[in-house]
Design a binder for these strands. Structure first.
Length: 433
RNA sequence: GCCCUGGUAGUGUAGCGGCCUAUCAUACGAGCCUGUCGAGCUCGUGACUCGGGUUCAAAUCCCGGCCAGGGCGCCA
């Protein structure tokens, strides 16, 4: 056994001297058995290395040389830079401990020349994620979120956790998953919106939450999930401009963190990433309507843009930009009307080209106005009593946003399908694994 | 939810009424090779999405289900 030695990551073998002993742990990516010598390509989460097995050096040579791909090994061996290995470095095995044997054939080859369908990949996600190009995505996403968290913490935000099982719809009604909750009918929350706002009334001043959001919409696109990760903030004594500033700086900080921690991953994936300049451009909804009309589309003021429209707008503004001052008709009840033009609102979307990443606004903080807005949207204020109550006893003006973490990850890595940046995606039909 | 396309060995594909006892690659199994490195070579194993229908005959045509991919609606 080699347990007393520290495990060396394959990536760190470069720093190990010629002839020094190391202990490696990983999976058999490939095994080539010749007449009286065998080669194992061992993989851990940092890379691969060739291990040479010789019958006279390894006591269980016969057993090891017959192992299936993806079996798990612990190997003690000597670093050898003078062998014929093409990589210039290999391990001469001294001891091999078989930790687990993989069944064969694999449902999905890790290193096969044939590509698997996306569906097959997702059905066998644990194997799919053994490919570096896939698991690297989640390391990048982790850094991205860490960078955003760091910025928000630096701005005195408090990370909070609000319930996902709720009694009432957040923004309407039709698109919620029903959940049996003992004798009550409840729903999975589509957004932490109402709870974030209640926390503004609690005096917490600035909060953010990273958590799941559920949408029971039957969409079937490469950029929608029925469960996604929402990064939400809400801040008191602030308007939409303050919130936009938080957003662009949080995104910038996230990207900086990715560049700091994942430069090798970006290089491996062949992606170029640059820190975006802040502030991001702000374009009003009205100006966007002008762009759309100039391209020859008929457009009625007050409508939302469709994919084709956003594509045209995106062409004008490569990179991140805000679309601001949306008409009230296309924004939720809690959106603050623009004091100069009540048809418009103090709202914004963060876009990257044609893709929407974030939706935000200054919120209504006056309870009477809020009730009026509920009724204008065809909602019954009494269904939201627990929420409106928090506005009646001193609700500060506030603003915030909700950002789709997977969407942002897709954008910075230029990945076309949101399922690729989700470990176990939930879409219209997929609930397993 | 709508429109289009598709579902053939473990994986990815060819075939699209009888010549299919179904192609090729990869994987898997057996063998050869003291140094391979997308190893190579020989031999072998392994498949027509499900349910109806049309036809002398269906992987192939028709209908429906399920699933997937692309587009749209809608959104984060």
């Amino acid at each position: 056994m080699v347990a007393e030695m520290n495990r060396t990551s394959i990536r760190n073998l470069d720093a190990v001297g010629q002839g020094e002993k190391v202990r490696l742990n990983g999976w058999i990516q490939d095994l080539r058995k010749l007449k009286s010598i065998s080669f194992v390509v061992l993989r851990d989460h940092t890379g691969t290395v060739q291990v040479t097995l010789k019958p006279d050096a390894v006591s269980n040579y016969n057993e090891v040389s017959e192992l299936s791909r993806e079996s798990v090994l612990e190997i003690e061996g000597k670093v050898d830079r003078k062998s014929g290995a093409k990589s210039g470095l290999e391990i001469q095995a001294l001891n091999v401990n078989i930790l687990n044997i993989a069944r064969s054939p694999l449902p999905l080859g890790i290193d096969d020349p044939v590509e698997a369908d996306f569906d097959t990949r997702l059905n066998n996600r644990f194997l799919d994620l053994r490919k570096p190009e896939n698991n690297i995505i989640f390391r990048v996403e982790s850094s991205l979120l860490w960078g955003m968290r760091k910025y928000l913490m630096s701005q005195n935000f408090v990370e909070v956790h609000t319930p996902k099982v709720v009694a009432a719809a957040t923004e309407g009604g039709a698109d919620l998953f029903r959940v049996k909750y003992f004798e009550k009918d409840t729903y999975l929350n589509q957004s932490p919106q109402l709870y974030k706002e209640i926390l503004m009334s609690s005096g917490m001043d600035r909060v953010f939450e990273v958590g799941p959001a559920f949408r029971a919409e039957e969409h079937n696109t490469p950029r929608h999930l029925n469960e996604f990760t929402s990064v939400d903030i809400e801040m008191s004594f602030a308007d939409h401009n303050d919130a936009m500033s938080m957003l662009e700086n949080a995104v910038k900080s996230g990207i900086e963190e990715v560049l700091k921690n994942n430069a090798d991953a970006l290089k491996f994936l062949g992606k170029e990433l640059k820190v975006p300049e802040v502030p991001f451009p702000r374009i009003t909804y009205s100006d966007c309507v002008g762009i759309v009309e100039k391209k020859g589309f008929k457009f009625n003021f007050g409508e939302d843009f469709n994919t084709e429209h956003l594509r045209e707008i995106g062409k004008e503004f490569p990179g991140f930009y805000f679309i601001t001052e949306w008409p009230a008709t296309v924004r939720p009840f809690y959106t603050m009307p623009n004091p100069n033009d009540p048809k418009l609102t103090n709202s914004y979307d963060l876009q990257f080209g044609e893709k929407e990443i974030t939706s935000g606004a200054q919120r209504v903080h006056d309870p009477d106005m809020l009730e009026k807005r509920f009724m204008e949207k065809g909602l019954n204020p009494s269904d939201f009593e627990f929420y409106i109550k928090a506005f009646r006893y001193g609700m500060p003006p506030h603003a915030g946003w909700g950002l789709g973490l997977e969407r942002l990850t897709m954008i910075i890595l230029d990945i076309p399908n949101i399922r690729s940046v989700t470990l176990f995606p939930r879409d219209r039909t997929r609930v397993v694994p």
